[in-house]
């Protein structure tokens, strides 16, 4: 029997109403930021979500953590259905699922010293406090007590991100969702933070969802990876497989687009035309059909592709893979 997932997301959609048009013909339209996403994460797993800007990664993260209430679908955390819980009922759940942000400048209060920043969550959740605990947390993220007195602006970007991680660790959460934790940092500092997250993950048995637009980062860090396009997942599977031998035409294009750092090698890229369509009027059928280099025809424009099996529990939602077994039918909500 497979163990119970720590997080199970079923056909989740998060739509936003947006106002469009001038003052005469104002109308409200629906922006489908996340549109029918399903996945499950086992305890101790590292799960990566990649996708280009606007594909819905951050919205999905906030929905998982119930910052947003999904428009449709169900979210279960350790078996408990949290889709409809109100703030009071969410309290104890919140402690166990925490978020690390990209922008450490605005996510850390500039008027508080490091000590106060780390003390705050302990107070909120009524946990044991004190200088020793603060120093212990700092040591976990590779900083020392010399940083206790500092304000965020007296720290480098990498150090601020370490504080952001320490603040999350203060609560001993079971799930950490890290939304682009390294994309604002220099490569040399990125490596420090990724190594830190990885060692914490194995030492503390954390479950981590890592969101990034850099497929190299996600492929290196995560056991399983899912690829998002226009609010939907188009492929998922073992990290190495998805990033080395992708099955979905979009993943293939995404990976071929990344410079491979092999000097003198002119690769043949799959050049996509145009850019991601608007999530306000997303294409019907397969969301990728407007840019897809292998589009089959009417079926891609009309029918949502089901999930076809790839390898090791992986799948890709593309009609061109229809010689393979179906894992799940297309998800229309």
């Amino acid at each position: 029997m497979t163990p119970r997932p720590l997080l199970a997301v079923e056909r989740v959609a998060t739509h936003f109403p947006v106002k469009r048009g001038g003052w005469l013909r104002r109308r409200v339209e629906t922006l489908k930021a996340v549109d029918g996403v399903s996945f499950a994460i086992l305890p101790g797993e590292t799960f990566g979500i990649v996708g280009e800007s606007g594909s819905g990664k951050s919205t999905l993260a906030r929905t998982i953590l119930r910052v947003y209430r999904p428009t449709a679908g169900r979210i279960r955390f350790d078996g408990l259905d949290i889709t409809e819980l109100d703030e009071t009922a969410l309290g104890p759940v919140r402690r166990n699922m925490q978020m690390v942000f990209q922008d450490t400048k605005s996510s850390l209060n500039p008027r508080l010293r490091v000590e106060q920043i780390l003390d705050e969550p302990l107070v909120t959740h009524g946990l044991p406090r004190g200088r020793r605990r603060v120093v212990e947390l700092l040591e976990m993220v590779g900083l020392g007590d010399s940083h206790v007195e500092r304000y965020p602006h007296q720290l480098s970007g990498g150090q601020r991100q370490r504080i952001g991680i320490a603040r999350v660790l203060a609560l001993n959460p079971r799930l950490i969702v890290a939304d682009e934790p390294v994309s604002a940092l220099d490569v040399s500092i990125q490596a420090q933070i990724l190594n830190l997250l990885k060692s914490l993950q194995s030492r503390l048995g954390l479950t981590i969802v890592l969101i990034a637009h850099d497929i190299g980062v996600v492929g290196y860090f995560c056991q399983r990876v899912a690829v998002m396009y226009l609010g939907r997942m188009v492929e998922a599977g073992p990290g190495r497989h998805v990033t080395r031998s992708p099955s979905h035409p979009y993943t293939q294009a995404l990976i071929s687009a990344i410079p491979k750092a092999e000097p003198g090698v002119r690769r043949s890229r799959i050049l996509l035309t145009g850019e991601i369509p608007s999530p306000i009027n997303p294409p019907t059928g397969c969301p990728f059909h407007t840019r897809c280099p292998v589009k089959l025809g009417a079926i891609c424009e009309r029918e949502r592709p089901p999930r076809y099996r790839t390898v090791d529990g992986g799948w890709a939602a593309c009609h061109a893979l229809n010689d393979r077994p179906v894992v799940a039918e297309a998800q229309e909500e």
């Binding site: 490569v187 490596a191 190299g216």
Partner: peptide
């Protein structure tokens, strides 16, 4: 050398990334 070896995209295995400790 360190810059080249801290790029995750070039990584072939799961070993830790090379880092450049400290800051500019």
């Amino acid at each position: 050398s360190a810059l080249l070896r801290c790029m995750p995209a070039l990584k072939q295995d799961d070993s830790p990334l090379e880092t450049i400790e400290g800051v500019v």
